[in-house]
Amino acid sequence: MKFSQLVGPRRSEVVTADDPIPGDHEVLVEVVACGVCTSDIGPWLDHDPAGPPVRLGHEMVGRVLAAGRDADRWRAGDLVTGLGGDGFATHAVMDANAVLPVPPGVEPAHAIGEPVADLEEALSRTPIAPGAHVAVVGLGFMGLGLVQLARRHAPGLLVGVDPDPARRRRALALGADLAFAPDELPEEYRAATTRATDARPGIVLEATGATGGLRTAGSMVRPFGTLCVVGYHHTGDAMMDMDLWYKAVTVVNGFCPDRTRLVAAMRRALDLVADRRFSYAPLITHRFGLDDVDEAFRTMREAGPDFVKGVVLL
């Protein structure tokens, strides 16, 4: 097998090793596609060259080559996606209880289960009723995914917020009713009024992963509304806006540490993919080979107007 490993700041190398052997509850897959995730940008930027190499990639789609003794429900040739690691490789082992079949007829790069499972699980704990006024703050990959997933709950108004005009245009194309830059929000989305006439959204989904975006999202929620923090806030302290307390806002932590819940959410999300109610097609904008992992991270970090999501294809 070949795999990419991180050997220094922003520097990876491809090496060769024996194929891994699946354990009793594992499957060995030939990796077909692996998404490039923002949660890996920190190690890629700062890896200590004096430390051991680090392997990245956890958004996998692969074809089963072999199954462990207690994973015999999977057969060689099955195309699966799920929760795993070390995905920037030609081969990987995955927990047989954390993979699901890719829907028939769906391109592997458009069937990556882990990211959409994260979004679906967060939304499962966020009460979006038909007719609700919903806002998505941050219209990168995660935010645009949330626009698609929120749309199916039949909101009365779905608003996207992002400083990038290209991202706002994408959100409108994917079903948002309105899209604004943060500093161009209408006054009624900024001003505090009585609850009976408050025009701010009752549900706000934050997908920026940045303190400024979290602040914007918090300011938009009307009294007794819900703020779901989906963005990946992986460094520093995100200060709580105490106005949320005074507004009696319910704050939902969009992160889920439980694999069972994530696999259940992934099953629901893949059903949506199969039914063409969620699509990666407008989100996967860049494709890379195994030798181009560093370029994939550079492209993601620069995030030009044509970028949404990159995937490494094997």
Rank of each mutant, 00 (worst) to 15 (best):
P182H: 09
D78K: 02
V80M: 01
F180W: 14
I112V: 15
G113Q: 03
A199W: 04
V116C: 03
P163Y: 03
G131P: 13
L100R: 14
T193H: 13
Q148T: 04
A176L: 04
D78M: 04
V93P: 06
R151D: 09
H133K: 09
G131E: 10
H110G: 07
A76E: 10
F88Q: 01
F88P: 06
D183H: 15
D86H: 05
R75S: 14
P101K: 08
V80Q: 05
P186T: 00
G138P: 04
V161F: 05
G202M: 00
A191W: 00
Q148L: 10
T90D: 13
L185C: 03
A191D: 02
R152P: 05
G77I: 03
L185Q: 07
R170F: 05
Q148K: 08
A109C: 07
L178S: 07
P165F: 01
V147H: 08
E120K: 00
V134W: 02
P155D: 08
H110V: 04
L144A: 04
G202Y: 05
E187A: 15
A181N: 06
D78S: 08
T193A: 15
L123A: 12
V137Q: 06
R152F: 08
H153R: 15
A150F: 10
P103A: 14
A171V: 05
V93T: 15
D164H: 08
N97M: 12
G138E: 10
D177A: 12
R73I: 07
P165A: 10
G156P: 14
L146D: 11
R125E: 13
V106Q: 06
R73K: 11
V161E: 04
G202C: 06
H153P: 02
A98W: 10
E121L: 04
L172T: 12
V80W: 01
A92L: 10
A150Q: 04
T193G: 12
P130M: 11
R152Q: 15
R195V: 12
